[in-house]
């Protein structure tokens, strides 16, 4: 294979994987702690992208847009958690999943209402190229990779070094015991949900210059996000990181080999992994709460 093609393919896969990772953390954390499958994270992803677009039009800076997208996504996530999830946390997981799907769907409708149906372009904030072993790589993609790596490190530090993070880790193991120590777990839930929403918004904002922003964008990445969390194992941050990059590489290298493989190969890998380990690479055999 042409080494130039290979290098740019790997970088492309890493950047896609980065976006998937940012987007999947929310799903994974929310499942781990609250035992919900929060499909509405895909809505915050779309919101992040759209706010990036709008703020770019207003201010002329994509970076301000991305920041604004994170803030707005976090606020919307907070509202959704307050008004919907807080009432249904106790329910069966399939039902919270349906409710979150409803939120996603309603959100797509609202986005169509506000921004219209047509795909919208967001320019890349940096057009410069870097040369890696003689291959020209867009610097923006490298920045996306670096940002997602920084997010991983910060999430790791948050979970391991702060008392809230430790409580969240404890809650992932056993919510009841955390409550038994006098800790208000609903505050932890809200914190986790907002963090997830903000990161999903970040994913959307960073992805926007690489794709066209359109109302269905959440639904379009949904299967890939699913694959990431399934392969990695629901509830595991490390698993999410590993599998996001696996899926990213499979998509981009698969596409080099044979076009349609890009969509099919991750699914085949997912099936294979589930066959060997039905709870994903790093997923534990957690019971329903």
């Amino acid at each position: 294979m042409d080494p130039q093609l290979l290098i740019s393919g790997v970088i492309f896969g890493l950047s896609i994987g980065s976006v998937f990772f940012l987007l999947s953390i929310g799903l994974s954390l929310c499942f781990g702690l609250m035992r919900i499958i929060s499909l509405d994270q895909l809505l915050y992803y779309a919101i992040g992208a759209y706010i990036t677009y709008t703020l770019y039009l207003v201010t002329g800076s994509v970076w301000i847009g991305v920041l604004g997208g994170m803030v707005i996504s976090g606020i919307v996530a907070f509202g959704v958690e307050r008004f919907i999830f807080l009432r249904i946390y106790e329910r069966d997981i399939t039902f919270t999943m349906i409710a979150s799907f409803g939120i996603l769907f309603a959100g797509v409708g609202a986005i169509k209402y506000i921004w219209g149906l047509a795909p919208l372009p967001v320019p890349s904030p940096i057009n410069a190229m870097a040369s890696i072993f003689g291959t020209e790589i867009p610097i923006y993609r490298l920045i996306v990779i670096v940002i997602s790596f920084l997010v991983y490190v910060s999430i790791w530090a948050f979970l391991n070094k702060t008392i809230t993070g430790k409580a969240i880790r404890a809650g992932i193991e056993n919510v009841e015991h955390v409550e038994g120590l006098g800790i208000n777990v609903y505050k932890l839930f809200t914190t986790t949900f907002i963090i997830s929403g903000v990161l999903s918004g970040l994913a959307g904002g960073l992805h926007a210059p690489l794709i066209m922003v359109d109302p269905q964008m959440g639904l379009e990445v949904l299967p890939f996000v699913f694959m990431v969390v399934i392969i990695g194992g629901l509830g595991s941050i490390k698993g999410t990181l590993v599998s996001a990059f696996i899926v990213g590489q499979v998509i981009s290298l698969g596409a080099i080999i044979y076009g349609p493989l890009a969509q099919m190969a991750p699914f085949a890998i997912m099936l294979l992994i589930l066959l060997i380990k039905p709870t994903g690479l790093y997923g534990s055999k957690m019971l329903k709460r």
């Binding site: 299967p223 076009g259 699914f267 709870t279």
Partner: peptide, 24 residues
Amino acid sequence: LRSDYFALVNLALAVIVFYLFEKV
């Protein structure tokens, strides 16, 4: 699969079938 994974895997399947019929 556990019911949550079942839901996720099925949706992924729908995507694959879609691409299968559309492209492959």
